[in-house]
Design a protein around this nucleic acid. Structure first.
Length: 863
RNA sequence: GGGCGGUUAGCUCAGCUGGUUAGAGCACCUGCUUUACACGCAGGGGGUCGCCGGUUCGAAUCCGGCACCGCCCACCA
């Protein structure tokens, strides 16, 4: 079947059929494959690597749609683009997935042992780890699939170890016994950023400690079980209530330990009783105070989450059970004075959901202050820009008070620390195993975010000086979510500056968070998730991309399926508009800005304005605005007005006029396909293949510019007047209950030059014939008060009486409002003269319209 | 506890540095088998722009306060 006949048959855009075929064409033509030796200014975006455990959710789809928009647009602009793709090993998440799998077989990872377990995880990764990357293809993502990387690739792992060793050499990384966030179920430390704070209803227990030499001191705690590990009581130095007790010894209930009463300015006088029990083993503030006062650190609860030997008969109890026992014992001892309901914020493990147990353990830390300094500067100086700008506050607030980062994890899946222990317990930090016998590598692995921090350059081969690194580093844009600004974005900037000698990107676009339609978080477990692949099946990838981009501006949004549907409508509209033009053009007609008639010049003028607007929107990261501009240009200006205006010419016998219409329409379509391609790549690529004189793929064609497109303000005004006239006529027909296509005869009063010159266009769109006769019929006021159409026809006016009166009243209301303004001396004095002139003009215009309508009504009354 | 964002038509959202009759899509009503599209065409109804003050000739837009909603940060036990 030839293409013309094929197009004739395909009366609607069938996304599913087109998408696989078009995607294959892109792949077969290596559209996505980046070549560092190719010409063109480099442009690089690194995909935020999804977890290997992930499957494409709405956030990924939006994130991918935005990146693909940028990548396709820049590619069309002739840049040498690389969209780097790959996945993250996601230490905790992946280990949990495989452990769950093992649990189904009735096993734990300990049954396998570390080596076998890690092997099992690798196997799992090989079989399902690229699922999500495959899903990105459905979306049309033009990432370079041939360069897919994984954060545990050999080369990548080497980069990670190099960075660790170098950070240690520079003195940033150190090992310390410190109070960390401990996740009991995961049996590992986690970083501050992996802790989620939630409000919890607890009880504040006030507990009396006897003081040696008489008296007592009452403290407040929400965790009585930690009393077992108390080593002091602290009060504020200026607190008169306790001045006489300072320096004495208090007796810790339950365990009977003698502890000093000390002073410290960090104690809040106003909170609780003003006396604070010091438990360095279980509280961050206490840990600090204990360190400064040289106090011992005791632990009531161990790394297994169970009670230790401080109370031998309680050893092995869970922390919760310990809590109950402690309360019970305090009551027995008469030490429990009050139980106060207390709502406060408590930390939870982001991954396991368990309440964080602050515990002391030997961990590896990275001092961040010196790394942060230059990274703060580049944001303050706008070398790195956030979009929207306010997001940089999240970054700066955190960076300016940054604390050491606990980078070690007690997991099995991840990058083992390049730390080697000798049998005597001493260690060296280096990549290779040291010479000699008995060296054991650290069993700890690194925080997943440690390796992610190197993503923009480790994926390009760093530390080797690869052509890729030379070409695409520093990179350009990062597109990601707000939740990982500090977790990831900040760390990429810091390590990029410190190691890769440059910024990983200059612009950070923070995409919206999409909530479920009811405003809740979109999540699988809540059942509020919407699967983007289902949307692609139902509406098509273009529609899904369009809808996501449209619904997301600079704030979080509720998912609105209607916007996806709008995208489907637009794709179909464009499809059929193109069919109309392609099926009704001469075989040798080719796209050209043939501005023969006003309508042609008008649509070219509108096209140029649209190109400017969309290009600016893309440049300014205003993607939602671009969808709106494109929609109204395609649907309203091109289809509703231009195509309707030229239909008669396309079907008619005037060869010159027909040719101009075809060429202009083809030209507009050609450029519009280019403009829309970054948002809707499939339908535009498919239509491109039907255009005459096309060369190659749209994805590799030039992005439209306004060069060679004539602007024509005169045509814009003329066609604007025609549109107003036609709209007025349609309204009048409806008001008079005439058939939509009932032919009308009309005369014009006022300045009718433009309308007379375009009588054919007016006739074609408005089914109206202009005649020279006295102006008598119902009035259709035209813009700017320049002219009025009068419709001839017996009995017409009578039917219109109500509507005419209504429109007259509307006009009068405007006159009144505007004249009121003008009567205000202050307004006339103080408002800018051009505003005042505008108002005067307005008043005159509406007064004229009202008068015309009034005259009609008067004539009716007279007749 | 600190900070940020939101509150505009029944629903989901646009409205930039204050100035035409506050817009769009969907939904709703009316009329159209017009040879690109019924995933269509035309017309219409619907909003005192969360509340209270202030600045200004003029406020959806700027400022202050309040009320809800959402998010981020945070070592007051």
């Amino acid at each position: 079947m030839d293409r013309h006949a094929e197009l004739e048959e395909r009366t609607r855009y069938e996304a599913a059929e087109v998408e696989s075929r078009v995607f294959a064409a892109w792949r077969d033509n290596n559209v996505f494959t980046a070549d560092p030796s190719a010409p063109g200014e480099p442009y690089c975006i690194a995909l935020p690597p999804p977890n290997v455990t992930g499957s494409l959710h709405m956030g990924h789809a939006l994130n991918g749609a935005v990146q693909d928009l940028l990548i396709r647009w820049r590619r069309m602009q002739g840049r040498n683009v690389l969209w780097q793709t790959g996945t993250d090993h996601a230490g905790i998440a992946t280990q949990m997935v495989v452990e769950r799998e093992l649990a189904k077989e009735g096993k734990t990872r300990h049954d396998l042992g570390r080596e076998a377990f890690v092997e099992r995880v690798w196997k799992w990764k090989q079989s399902t780890g690229s699922t999500i990357i495959e899903q990105y293809k459905r979306l049309g993502a033009s990432m370079d699939y041939s360069r897919e990387r994984f954060t545990m690739d050999d080369q990548y792992a080497l980069a990670v170890q190099d960075v660790f060793v170098e950070l240690h050499r520079r003195g940033y990384i150190y090992r310390d016994n410190y109070l960390v966030n401990w996740s009991v179920p995961l049996a590992t430390a986690i970083s501050d950023l992996e802790v989620e704070h939630k409000d919890v209803d607890d009880v504040l227990y006030e507990v009396a400690y006897a003081v040696e030499g008489g008296g007592e001191i009452i403290i407040a705690t929400v965790r009585p079980v930690t009393i077992l590990a108390d080593v002091a009581i602290a009060v504020h130095p200026n607190d008169p209530r306790y001045a006489s007790l300072v320096g004495k010894q208090a007796i810790v209930p339950i365990v009977g330990r003698r502890v000093p009463i000390i002073t410290d300015e960090r104690v809040e006088i106003d909170f609780g009783t003003g006396a604070l029990k010091i438990t360095p083993g279980h509280d961050p503030l206490d840990f600090e105070i204990g360190k400064d006062h040289g106090l011992e650190t005791l632990s009531a609860i161990g790394l297994d989450g169970k009670l230790g030997e401080l109370v031998p008969e309680w050893a092995g109890l869970s922390a919760d059970e310990g809590h109950l026992r402690a309360v019970e014992r305090l009551q027995e001892e008469g030490a429990l004075r009050q139980e106060i309901p207390y709502r406060h914020s408590v930390g939870f493990c982001q991954r396991s959901g368990a309440r964080i147990e602050p515990l002391v353990s030997l961990q590896w830390f990275c001092r961040m202050d010196e790394l942060a300094k230059p990274a703060i500067d580049v944001v303050k100086s706008r070398e790195v820009r956030f979009h929207p700008e306010r997001m940089e506050k999240i970054y700066l607030d955190w960076m300016e008070q940054i604390r050491p980062w606990c980078v070690s994890r007690q997991l099995w899946w991840g990058h083992r620390l390049p730390v080697w222990f000798a049998p005597d317990g001493s260690f060296v930090v280096q990549v290779e195993q040291p010479e000699g016998e008995g060296w054991e590598q650290s069993t700890d692995v690194l925080d997943t975010w440690f390796s992610s921090a190197l993503w923009p350059y480790a994926t390009l081969g760093w530390p080797e000086a690869t052509p890729e690194l030379a070409k695409w580093y520093p990179g350009n844009v990062l597109v990601t979510g707000r939740d990982i600004i500090n977790l990831w974005v900040a760390r990429m900037i810091m390590t990029g500056i410190a190691f890769a000698d440059g910024l990983p990107f200059t612009d950070v676009y923070i995409n919206s968070t999409i909530q479920a339609a009811d405003g809740r978080r979109m999540s699988k477990s809540l059942g509020t998730g919407v699967d983007p692949l289902d949307l692609i099946d139902q509406y098509g990838a273009d529609a899904t991309r369009y809808g996501l981009i449209k619904m997301c501006s600079t704030q979080d949004v509720r998912f609105a399926e209607g916007m996806i549907d709008e995208g489907r409508g637009l794709a179909n509209k464009l499809w059929n508009a193109s069919r109309l033009v392609l099926l009704n053009s001469d075989p040798d007609a080719a796209p050209a800005p043939n501005g023969l008639e006003s309508a042609d010049r008008w649509i070219l003028d509108r096209l140029a304005a649209t190109i400017e607007s969309v290009t600016t929107d893309y440049e300014d990261f205003q993607f939602s605005a671009a969808t709106k501009t494109l929609y109204s240009f395609i649907w309203n200006e091109f289809c509703d007005w231009y195509l309707e205006a030229i239909k008669a010419r396309l079907y008619g016998d005037d060869a010159g006029s027909k040719r101009a219409a075809s060429e202009t329409a083809l030209f507009v379509i050609e450029r519009t396909l280019g403009l829309l391609h970054p948002i809707c790549p499939f339908v535009t690529e498919e239509l491109w293949s039907f255009l005459p004189n096309r060369t190659g793929l749209l994805a590799l064609s030039d992005f439209p510019t306004t060069a060679g497109i004539p602007r024509d303000a005169e045509a814009a005004r003329t066609v604007g007047a025609i549109i107003e006239a036609v709209t007025g006529l349609r309204r009048l027909r409806q008001d008079a209950e005439l058939s939509p296509r009932a032919p009308l005869v009309a005369t014009i009063s006022g300045d009718a030059t433009a309308l007379r010159a375009e009588a054919a266009l007016l006739a074609a769109l408005g089914t109206v014939e202009l005649v020279d006769a006295a102006a008598t019929g119902p009035a259709v006021p035209l813009p700017a008060g320049s002219a009025t159409l009068h419709i001839q026809g017996d009995g017409l006016a009578g039917k219109l009486r109500g509507r005419l009166a209504k429109r007259r009243d509307e006009a009068l209301a405007e006159v009144k409002k505007t004249e009121g303004k003008l009567a205000n001396a202050k307004f006339v004095d103080r408002a800018p003269p051009e505003i005042v002139a505008e108002e005067r003009d307005r008043a005159a215009r509406f007064a004229r319209d009202a008068a015309e309508l009034e005259a009609q009504l008067a004539a009716l009354d007279a007749g």
